[in-house]
């Protein structure tokens, strides 16, 4: 199984290298293991995460693209749809069978026609538009809903941190 997954990942890597979406870089951490990627995601403009460069780790299953990869931010994040440990919770990363939140329609979930690029673009739009209905980080969802300025300040801090700038 790993053979076809490898071929597909190679094709995706090639495409992401030759034709990268704005502000997104993704590739294997180590050429010896094509199933562990690191992605850098730039916070979308005109949002509170604007300008930040957030590293995330993508772990692909052996039967990719039949099963979705797992995505985890390697930096500190404060966002309603990101678990405190960095795991990303969006519907595109959930297999059609499992539904942790219990109300996603299967149409939004993982299918083999999705790709790393689509995942990363979804994550970018998730950064811009948090979905506080299915909160992975309840605290973040609360701050986002009730204290937008406070959320923006926290996000600003994260942006500075992600750029390696002093607070």
């Amino acid at each position: 199984m790993a053979g076809s997954a490898l071929k597909r990942l190679m094709a995706e890597y090639k495409q992401l290298t030759l034709n990268p979406p704005e502000g997104i870089i993704a590739g294997p951490i180590d050429e010896e293991n094509f199933f562990q990627w690191e992605a850098l995601i730039t916070g979308p403009e005109d949002t509170c995460f604007e300008g930040g460069v957030f590293p995330a780790q993508l772990t692909f299953p052996h039967d990719y693209p039949l099963s979705p990869p797992k995505m985890k931010f390697n930096c500190e994040m404060f966002h309603p749809n990101i678990y405190p440990d960095g795991r990303v919770c969006i519907s595109i990363l959930h297999a059609p069978g499992d539904d942790p939140m219990g109300y996603e329609s299967s149409a939004e979930r993982w299918s083999p026609v999705q790709s790393v690029e689509k995942i990363l673009l979804s994550v970018v739009s998730m950064l811009a538009e948090p979905n506080d209905e299915s909160a992975a980080n309840v605290d973040a969802a609360k701050v986002w809903r009730e204290d937008r300025d406070g959320f923006n300040k926290l996000a600003e801090k994260l942006v500075r941190k992600s750029l390696g700038l002093p607070q």
């Binding site: 502000g23 870089i25 690191e38 850098l40 730039t42 300008g51 930040g52 460069v53 942006v159 500075r160 750029l163 390696g164 700038l165």
Partner: peptide, 12 residues
């Protein structure tokens, strides 16, 4: 990756 971070830093 480096240049992306660098560029983002500059922009910021």
């Amino acid at each position: 990756k480096e240049s992306l971070v660098q560029q983002a830093r500059k922009k910021y």
